[in-house]
């Protein structure tokens, strides 16, 4: 098993980051995400915590040699559960791959929380664990390293893509201060 971690500070308040999180796609920096659907939602009236379950549809995102080896489909699916605590200003998202689990299991947790030292900023952490299935144990090191590198590349692109979304929303707020935009 291999673990990938990264962190970043977004120079936007948590409320803006958490709202923009649901408007992140489509994103030219992350063309592999082709569809996102909410499949369950629940607000706990006592804690005020919102939970969302989403299904993510991705275009081929597996190494071509696995594709050759296993004839993997060109579309893969992932499941994500988000927990949003508006009082403590924490948004936590955990996702798992649904497809190809017998080959590789990937579990990723992303947390956006208000910077305790500066409420105009948001701390971001990402952790992914990648574990190769038993049938491919011989190639485990290669496959897991490949996936870690893929995570590294996608994390950078994803961050850039999200910065673009945040900036676009900031501009639209500045242009229409009295009006909310919902695109």
């Amino acid at each position: 098993m291999k673990i990938f971690t990264t962190s970043h500070i977004f120079r936007y308040p948590w409320t803006q980051v958490s709202a923009a999180n649901w408007r992140k796609y489509p994103n030219e920096n992350c063309p592999h995400v082709i569809a996102i659907d909410v499949i369950d939602q629940h607000v706990d009236p006592e804690t005020g915590i919102l939970r969302l379950e989403r299904l993510i549809t991705c275009k081929q995102n597996v190494p071509s040699f696995i594709r050759r080896l296993c004839g993997a489909a060109s579309v893969t699916y992932a499941r994500e559960i988000s927990e949003i605590d508006p009082k403590n200003k924490v948004l936590k998202m955990t996702s798992w791959n649904l497809s190809l689990k017998h080959l590789v299991s990937v579990a990723e947790t992303v947390v956006y929380s208000e910077d305790p030292e500066d409420s105009s900023r948001t701390c971001f952490t990402q952790e992914a664990s990648i574990k190769c299935g038993e049938s491919l144990e011989r190639f485990a090191n290669y496959i897991e390293s490949f996936c870690v590198q893929r995570f590294h590349d996608n994390a950078q692109k994803g961050r850039q893509g999200f910065e673009t979304v945040l900036e676009r929303l900031r501009q639209s707020r500045a242009a229409m201060p009295a009006q909310e935009t919902h695109d």
Binding site: A19, V38, K87, E180
Partner: peptide, 21 residues
């Protein structure tokens, strides 16, 4: 339609402490 409803609710209600769906 759902996304538009959700995004509006999320920013204008939920983040401000009103968690009625």
């Amino acid at each position: 339609e759902y996304d538009a409803c959700f995004n509006k609710w999320y920013s204008e209600k939920f983040l401000k402490g009103d968690c009625n769906p």
